[in-house]
Each structure stands twice: as C-alpha cells, then as structure tokens.
Design a protein around this nucleic acid. Sequence first.
DNA 1: TTGACAGCTTACTGACCGGTAAGTAGAGTC
DNA 2: GACTCTACTTACCGGTCAGTAAGCTGTCAA
Lengths: 201, 201
Amino acid sequence: MKMESAAKGETRKKILDLAEALLLSHGYHGFSYQQISKVLGVRNAAIHYHFPHKTDLGVALIQRYRRRFARFTDSQQRLGGQEQLERYFELSETYFAKDRQICPSGVLSTEFPRLPEVMQAEASAFIDEMRSWAVAIALKGRAEATMAYTGEPEAIGAVLFSTLQGALQLARIDENILVTVKNQIRAMLGINMAEFTREGG
Amino acid sequence: MKMESAAKGETRKKILDLAEALLLSHGYHGFSYQQISKVLGVRNAAIHYHFPHKTDLGVALIQRYRRRFARFTDSQQRLGGQEQLERYFELSETYFAKDRQICPSGVLSTEFPRLPEVMQAEASAFIDEMRSWAVAIALKGRAEATMAYTGEPEAIGAVLFSTLQGALQLARIDENILVTVKNQIRAMLGINMAEFTREGG
DNA sequence: TTGACAGCTTACTGACCGGTAAGTAGAGTC
DNA sequence: GACTCTACTTACCGGTCAGTAAGCTGTCAA
C-alpha cells in the first residue's frame, strides 16, 4: 500500500499548520492530537513521532511565530510609522478573517497560568517582542512627527497592543468593534483619517 | 455520620464561588467538576445534583455576573464620569490582585466559539452590558466636560473596554502594563493626572 | 545484500472528562 | 408511624485525553 511517506518534513509542516489554526481558534488546551491526526489521515502516534509531547508542539508553534514575526518587523523597518501601524492593523484583520481566530498573544496570555513552563518562557519572549514592535511604531511616528500624542511611546505601544488584543477577542461577539477601535486609535494618534478612506473600510 | 447537610443553598453558593475563581483563572474548559468537588469535600455527583450539566453551571455563573454588574453600575449612576472611570479601573485591579485572574469578558470572548449556545447568548448579553457601561462613562465625561477627547463616546467606550481586557491578560506576563495603560487612557481622555496622584499608585 | 534509519502503524495504558442510576440519611409534614 | 422531599452518596458508564512500546516498510548508503 503506502507508497510515499510524505516528502520529508512535509507531515511535520502540515501538523504545525493545522495545530496553529486550532490553537488560534480553540486554544492550547482546546485542541487534541486526535483532531490533527483525523484531518491529516494519519494515526495519533504519527503526531507523537514528530512531537513526542504536546508541549513540544506548543513550543515549536511559538518559536515559529517568533521567527515569522521577526521577519515581519524586519521587512518593515524602513516604512514610515503610519504605514507600520496600518500593517499592524492588517495583521489583526487577517486573524479575524480566518475563522474568527484571535491573535497568538491573546491565546497565550489567557492560558498562561496553565501552560507548561517551557511554553511560558517562549510565550513571554514572544509577547515582549510584539509589544516592543508596537512601541517602536509609536516612537517612529513621534520622531517623524506623523503622529501626535501625549505621553511616552512605551505607554502608547502598550495601549496599542492591549487594545488590539482585546478588540480581536471581542470581535467574536461584535464584528464592528475592530474597525471602531482602529479608527479611534488613529484619531488618538493624531492621524488624519482622510488619508485612509481610500482603503474603503 | 453526616449531621448537617449544608444550610440550604450553601453548597450551591460554594460551588458557584469556586467555579467562578476557576473560570477566571483557568477558563471554562479549563476546570472540572472534580476540582470543585475535591475542594468542597463532596462527591462529583453532588455538583451534578445542583448543576446537572456543566452548561447549567456556566449559565448560572454568567447570570450572576450580570446581576452583580447591574448592581455595580446602578450604584454609580450619580457619580461623575471621572469617578466612574476610576471604579471601572479598580474592577480590573481587583481581578488581577486575586490570583492573576482575568475579567469574565476576556475568558468568555476567548472561549466563545467553543461555548455551548445558551452560554454564548448569556455571554453576548453580558459583554454588551459591559461595553455599554464604558460608553456611558465616556458620554458622561463629555457631557460634564470633565473629559476631553476626539471621536464619539461609542468609540471611546469600545477602546476603553478592549484595552482593559487586553491589558489584564497581558499583565500575567508583565505586571506593569495595567498601570501604564490606565495612565495613558487618563491622558488620552484629557484627565489631569495630578488629581489621582493622591491615590499613591 | 545487508544494515541502518526515517516515518510511520497497530495496539495499548492509565488518567480524567462529563454524566447517570440507584440508593440513603435526615428533616419536616400529616 | 408512614410519606415526602432535599441533599447528598456509591458505583458506575462511554468517551477522550496524552503518551508509549513494539512492529513494519520503503529508501538509501556501504
């Protein structure tokens, strides 16, 4: 029977992709190896072959997020603060569009106390990187004078990060909150709304 | 043996109290009847006697929140917008102080897609009430001219609600974010910080 | 041709999950 | 003293969870 045993690392990637979707929609404790193996058409133990413990899978997921997020920010270092902010906004829009997922930081911080220690460490580092990026955006916006706000960039970044995380979760109950919140943040950062009406949304 | 079979409705209340703490720290799917019965010193089936299905317990918890929150807002109708805002802030502080709990809306919106339908309906109503109160605060602040902001009260309320929900979750990783975010919100609402330094932090 | 290894499978374990049926002790009512 | 109700208990159930041991198969290198 079995002819191709998956072109090396292919199954592993499929597992990660599926686990990621399940993590963002159901949470870490909300998905099982069974759910993954059923969709992939393999046995439960096949998942355990690639990720002996569920913790290993969890850690791998966060590490992949961190690599991905690092590439994301790297690719935007040269953009202006306003453009960076809009890309940041788009990130959350993407999550919501995909089966009403919430952002990884939302899942991880909510489940944090019940996460295995190694995952907590990875999650802390990841969340720190996300918040730092929000701060960097605020800092750039002020330096360029394309944003105008009272208070320090650190505080603006913290608000930006917290607000989007909360709004993305609440969007599951009221879809409109994401757009409302983004517009209000733009207003609070002194960004001329007219510049973004061309986006049509 | 057994002499007192709990002074009528006492066990039921104990179950609710324990379940509430577990809900806010571990989530709805993150606690079990076993955990409750073990602490209470009763058998599993005793919990099922009071709440036949876990869904019943979940609904009862949200309904109790809604009653409590209605009393909370009722008692503050006559306060000024700034005072109302500070009470709102204190709410989140209370959750965090109690074993790093997060707010019920955070748990419920995060787990929303996996919640039983009856719980989803209750959760939606509850979250709507919480957001409405945030809007009411912003509205009052503007009417009294004790707050100054651009944009509509609806948007300010949405930001206020989202931000606190997110910050409360992120406080599990970085404790400082709650204070930072609150100060920044005050600044964004044009509230004179000096007025609140008497609180000492 | 043999041997090693990757990538699985079959078959299982023990713990825990929510939930149920049947029985029982005590208190209150008639 | 019999009846009834509340508030449980004991003793299960089937299902699902993460995890493991041992076996099988195709590929590739020596």
